[in-house]
């Protein structure tokens, strides 16, 4: 641990400001609370919102897991883990079930979260209405009036043009029957995991200076139409090439030598855990 810095990098005033915004965000699920996003030692848009939430939450007893697109070992995840562990000395883990704070970019882990965990999601674009309304002043008004026709119209136009809703990730959701919220660019596959989740989910957008939250056991509904129901990505009949898991989010990869398409778990620590269990069972 590097003692030249404050515990958790921030001064106490910065933590207090982020904490006050976080508490308001929990009290108003799905509402984007503005906060004074701090300058961080990583670039804006690289997870500064999530990092600020993590640093404001973390204590000596916490166990931290950071994932980037399902991977514990990508550059972004490793840098964030290094920064937090250098300034706090907390334990780092890859195991989802052992972590108390999980900071994630673009995935909700495959292992179901429990009540003692907090999931922190990094958000690039927190405003689900930004696509059709460039003015922040106007989108705030639309949220205030619960005027979400634009969000539905956006999906309707996609259906008209392409025959289905084409939101690959970040498919907008309705929180507690009040706010339309960007769930951060998680794949549609993960949207249903947000609904009535056991863990507290906090979302932070550093560049856009917004914090919002989904408390545990909160109703989350992905926007859709009666005749065009919302569907997550389907991996029917496919399984992970390494661990054989089905019903998880898979990455599609192509073997360049043979041109063959194969699939692999996107959540690397989940895949590893399954493989280790199989190996253990084999040895015994």
């Amino acid at each position: 641990m590097n003692t030249a810095y404050n515990f958790a990098f921030f001064d106490e005033g910065s933590k207090r400001e982020i904490r006050r915004a976080t508490l308001k965000a929990i009290a108003i699920p799905g509402y984007q609370v503005p906060f004074a996003s701090r300058e961080m030692p990583i670039g804006r848009g690289w997870g500064t919102g999530g990092l600020q939430l993590t640093l404001s939450l973390i204590g000596k007893e916490d166990v931290l897991k950071v994932i980037d697109q399902g991977s514990d070992e990508s550059v972004n995840a490793v840098s964030i883990k290094k920064l937090v562990s250098d300034t706090t000395g907390v334990q780092i883990t890859d195991h989802t079930s052992r972590a108390t704070i999980i900071q994630s970019r673009h995935r909700i882990p495959e292992v179901p979260l429990n009540k003692d965990q907090i999931l922190v999601l990094q958000v690039p674009l927190p405003e689900p209405l930004r696509y059709f309304e460039p003015s922040e002043h106007e989108t705030k008004k639309l949220h205030a009036e619960k005027e979400y026709s634009g969000a539905w119209l956006m999906l309707f136009e996609q259906i008209m043009k392409y025959g289905s809703m084409t939101t690959g990730a970040d498919h907008p959701v309705m929180v507690h029957d009040r706010y339309v919220m960007a769930p951060s660019p998680i794949p549609r596959f993960d949207n249903s995991k947000m609904n009535e989740n056991e863990a507290l989910i906090l979302l932070g957008a550093g560049r856009e200076k917004k914090i919002y939250a989904v408390p545990p056991f909160t109703k989350i509904v992905s926007l859709d139409f009666e005749d065009y129901p919302f569907e997550g990505e389907s991996f029917d009949g496919k399984c992970c090439r390494l661990c054989g898991s089905e019903g998880v989010f898979l990455d599609e990869l192509i073997d360049e030598a043979t041109g063959e398409t194969y699939y692999q778990c996107n959540d690397t620590s989940y895949c590893c855990e399954i493989l280790n269990e199989v190996e253990k069972a084999g040895v015994n």
Partner: peptide
């Protein structure tokens, strides 16, 4: 920090 986390737990 510990007071804050308890406040977060109780509020959520």
């Amino acid at each position: 920090q510990s007071v804050y986390r308890k406040l977060v737990d109780s509020t959520s």
